[in-house]
Design a protein around this nucleic acid. Structure first.
Lengths: 69, 69
DNA sequence: CCTTTACGTAAAGCTAGCTTTACATTTAAG
DNA sequence: CTTAAATGTAAAGCTAGCTTTACGTAAAGG
């Protein structure tokens, strides 16, 4: 699962530290998210999408076309 | 955080067990989700929304109007 | 050289999502 | 009463999201 967090953060002129504060998570969490190291909780995903005024599905890119019917 | 899972499941004539199989999770997970007992992972939320052909934000209802601008 | 800012890795630890098993209740059918 | 399907609770256990601390690197500035 990929995401556009790094891109969006830079577009909004935020450092990792600033983004972490706004989302009320640690900087490590931001780094890990940007590196695609894990699958965040829905609430965190929502906070991110809300901050950037986007839909969750537009921030996070899911693997479509795997076993999709 | 609330959600419309129970409602959507019934609209689609699915039992908890059938929904669990489709989502590749346990029935307990469905029960807990329907009861709002926790905050699912983003991937699970996505699978649910995709199954019902909806946006995540339309399946899960986040507390808006708290400190929202 | 030294300090500050920003980004990154590593690893130990806590918490909560999710699984598994077991048991109880309700409704429908015989 | 018995069987079966559907829903629910309880609790033990594994895994992974997230935190915290520590250390390393590179760029900007004095």
């Amino acid at each position: 699962m990929q995401n556009r967090i790094k891109d969006l953060r830079q577009q909004h002129d935020l450092t990792q530290d600033e983004l972490a504060e706004k989302l009320e998570v640690s900087r490590q969490t931001i780094i890990s998210l940007e590196k695609g190291r894990y699958n965040p909780s829905l609430i965190l995903a929502h906070k991110i999408a809300k901050l950037f005024e986007m839909q969750i599905e537009d921030v996070f890119i899911f693997e479509e076309g795997k076993n999709n019917g």
